[in-house]
């Protein structure tokens, strides 16, 4: 029982950054913008979060810095793809390349002289897990209540994100823009504004996911701290079928695999780590296959129909 509880606790901690990034990308993609810059934005979020925390000593400032950096990078993507109507895949990939490289560069320049200008190996303020008295002692679900503040925030954020998307005016506009920008435009929705806002807000959430890594999950800065999580998130968005409420399950699954991996490695298993790492992607492929079989269903839950297309009013 204790084993289950501890695996679940790690799964949730590992999944938190994934959930933030997945929610961010769901919002971006719901507006019809595919942002493949996630990996770069997460790395920049992790770096700016840690560096700010290290120098200011304030975790709150660190989170704000990460949000701002994520929003700025996503704004570049929005400008390129919405205003300049550049190819979304190319723009996103270049943001990933830029973000990864720039984060790595800054990691070697922003540190104190005592550490040879490097950030690697330093320890700074971190977001510590806080147990909720009473609840954290419960078997199994106690794992839900031994988390850090970012995870607790998610418990509220996920239902809010769902409500926002499916029950509010903004959510209605957002979904319409991603599905059919021409119709949304004709109905008086400001397509450009919605696309910009969704991309920028999405980018900020993605960067927050990155900051959770350097401030809580594996505190400190290290090269490639995200370990490819940005790419996992792209699969998770599909896995969640663009629904915020479902994002949590995929993230838990991926986080759980992470946790099981820790445990298995500690117990000296013979199952190779690569095999376990592969499982989530296998699950994603299975979902994609199932979706094509289920065509009538995919009309309701599938990818936003306008995903990846630039919109211009007077084009036929």
């Amino acid at each position: 029982m204790e084993l289950v509880t501890s695996i679940l606790a790690i799964a949730i901690r590992a999944g938190t950054s994934l959930v933030y990034a997945t929610l961010g990308e769901i919002y971006t993609e719901r507006a019809g913008i595919l942002n493949l810059g996630l990996e770069g934005i997460m790395l920049m979020g992790a770096l700016s979060g840690f560096a700010t925390a290290y120098y200011s000593g304030s975790v709150a400032l660190a989170l704000l810095a990460a949000l701002a950096v994520g929003a700025a990078l996503a704004a570049i993507h929005a400008f390129l793809t919405v205003t300049m109507r550049a190819n979304q895949v190319v723009s996103g990939l270049s943001i990933t390349l830029f973000g990864s490289g720039f984060a790595s560069f800054l990691g070697q320049r922003l540190g104190p002289i005592s550490n040879n200008h490097r950030l690697v190996g330093l320890s700074g303020p971190r977001i510590a897990p806080i147990g909720v008295p009473g609840l954290s002692e419960l078997p199994v679900i106690g794992a839900l209540f031994t988390q850090d503040i970012l995870t607790y925030a998610l418990y509220a954020l996920i239902p809010l994100a769902w409500f926002y998307l499916y029950r509010t005016r903004h959510g209605l506009n957002l979904r319409a823009v991603g599905e059919d920008p021409q119709t949304a435009d004709a109905m008086g929705v400001d397509v450009f504004k919605v696309k910009y806002l969704a991309t920028i807000a999405g980018g900020a959430l993605v960067a927050l996911g990155g900051a959770q890594l350097s401030l809580s999950y594996t505190p400190g800065w290290s090269e490639n701290i995200t370990g490819g999580r940005g790419w996992i998130v792209i699969a998770l968005v599909i896995f969640a079928m663009w629904n915020p409420a479902r994002a949590v399950w995929g993230a838990l699954l991926f986080g759980g695999i992470n946790a099981v991996q820790f445990r298995l490695q500690a117990s000296g298993t013979t199952i190779p780590a690569g095999f376990l790492n592969m499982l989530p992607y296998l699950a994603t492929i299975a979902v994609l296959v199932a979706m094509t079989f289920w065509e009538s269903l995919s009309k309701r839950i599938g990818a936003p129909a306008g995903l990846g297309n630039a919109y211009m009013r007077e084009e036929k």
Partner: peptide
């Protein structure tokens, strides 16, 4: 409009 302005999935 000639091509209806309706979002299919809504």
């Amino acid at each position: 409009h000639q091509n209806f302005m309706l979002v299919d999935s809504m």
